[in-house]
Design a protein around this nucleic acid. Sequence first.
DNA 1: TTACTAACGAACCAGTTCGTACATTAGGAG
DNA 2: CTCCTAATGTACGAACTGGTTCGTTAGTAA
Lengths: 221, 221
Amino acid sequence: MATVEEPTRPAVRTRDAARTRAEILDVATQEFARAGYTGARVDEIAARTRTTKRMIYYYFGGKEQLFTAVLERAYSQIRQAEQEVDVDHLDPVAAIRRLAELTFDHHEAHPDFIRLVAIENIHEAEHMAASEQLGALNSPAIEVIRRILDAGRASGLFSADIDAVDLHAMISSFCFFRVSNRHTFGALFGRDLVAAEQREHYRTMLGDMVIAYLTADRSEA
Amino acid sequence: MATVEEPTRPAVRTRDAARTRAEILDVATQEFARAGYTGARVDEIAARTRTTKRMIYYYFGGKEQLFTAVLERAYSQIRQAEQEVDVDHLDPVAAIRRLAELTFDHHEAHPDFIRLVAIENIHEAEHMAASEQLGALNSPAIEVIRRILDAGRASGLFSADIDAVDLHAMISSFCFFRVSNRHTFGALFGRDLVAAEQREHYRTMLGDMVIAYLTADRSEA
DNA sequence: TTACTAACGAACCAGTTCGTACATTAGGAG
DNA sequence: CTCCTAATGTACGAACTGGTTCGTTAGTAA
C-alpha cells in the first residue's frame, strides 16, 4: 500500500566499453541463434542487455554488422579450440579417430554455433563475405588432418587418396547434420539423433565410417 | 505519345481454385526458401502471384499455415520420387551405392527443398509438428534400405550391424551438408562443394564411404 | 578543480508487415 | 434466365521494427 515511489535506483551506471560490447555479443549470439537473422529483434537483444539499443548502433553500426561480429567471434572461438588439439603422439588411425571424435564433441557442445552457421548459409554467407576477418583464413584443423593423412599414407595404412579439406567435409557433414537436422529428422523418423543414450553409438559410427573409408581394401577395384 | 489510357485489361478473372492454390504454393516455396520463414513476405508472395494476398488467407489461413502447406507438399514430392526407386535387381553392394547416388542426385537437384528443411530446423520443426499429414509417416526409402541391408547381411557381404534409419542418416548427412553448407564452406576453404567439375568426385566418395563402412573387415576388432 | 570526451539513455520516427473489413463477380444449379 | 455462393479484389489499420535525434554523465587528463 505504500504510495511512496521507489526511487528507481540510479543503477550506478558504471562505464566499461569492453564489458558492454561483450555483453551485447553474448545476447546477440543467443537471439540470432534462436530466431534466425531476420527473426532476431534488435529491441529484444537490447532489452536482455544491461544497456540500450543505442549502444548496439554505437558499437556495431547496425543489425547486419552485429551479426557479422557474432559470426566472427563464434568462428574465432572454434579456431582457438582447434589449435589446442594434440594428436601427434597417436598413430594415424587413432589420430583420425580422435580428431573425428573431437569434432563430434564440439558440434554437440555448441548447438548455437551450428544454428548460426545454418542461418548464415540461408543467407548465402553474405555476412562472412562482408567480413575481412573471416576471409578464407584456413582452419587449423585442416593442417592437422593433412599431417595425419601424409603419415597414414606413408606407412601404407591409408589407401584412400582423399585430401584434407574433403576429409574435413566428410567428418563435419555427419557431425553437423546430427545437430542441425535433429528436429526434422526426429519428426520424420521418431529418432532423436542427439539423445544422450545414442551418443556413444553415433560417435563410434562416425569413427568407424571414416577409418573404413581411409583403410578400405581397393585392390579389387 | 498516345495519351489514351490503356483500358487496364480486365484480366478476365477466371476462377479456378485449384490453380490459384497451386500457384500460391509455388511462389511461396520460392519465397520461403529464398528468405527463410521470418524473412519471407506475405505481400511479396502475393505480388508474384496472379492473385492477391486476400487469397492466401482465404485458402491457407495465414503465414504459418502457408509454410506448413509448403513443407507438406515438398515432402510429399520427395516421397513420390523415393517410391519410384527400383534397385531390387541389383546385388546389395550395387543397390546401396545406387541408392546413395539417387539421394545425392536428389539433393543436388532440389536445393530449395534443402533450404526449406534447414529453415524448418531453425524453427525446431514446429510447423511439421503442427501438421497432421507429416506425422511420422516413414519415408519409403527406409523400407528399401532395410531390405537391402537384410540381403547384404544374409549373403555375408555386409559386416556392419547398422539399422536402416541410421544408414539413411549417414547418407543424407553427406548429401545434405554438401548443399546446405555450400556457402560457408566455400567462404572458409575456398572450395565449392557443388561445383560441376567436382560432382563425380563427391558422388563416388559418398558411395565409397558407405560401402567401405558396410563391408569393413571387423575381424581384428 | 575544471574541462573534455567517450560512453550512455530516453524518446521518437518513418517505413514496413501481417492480417482484416467490406465490396464484387464468375459460373454453375435449378 | 435467375439466383446463389465460392472465389476474388481493394483499401485500410494496428502493431511492430530498424534506426536516429538529442540530451546526459562517468571518468580522466591537465
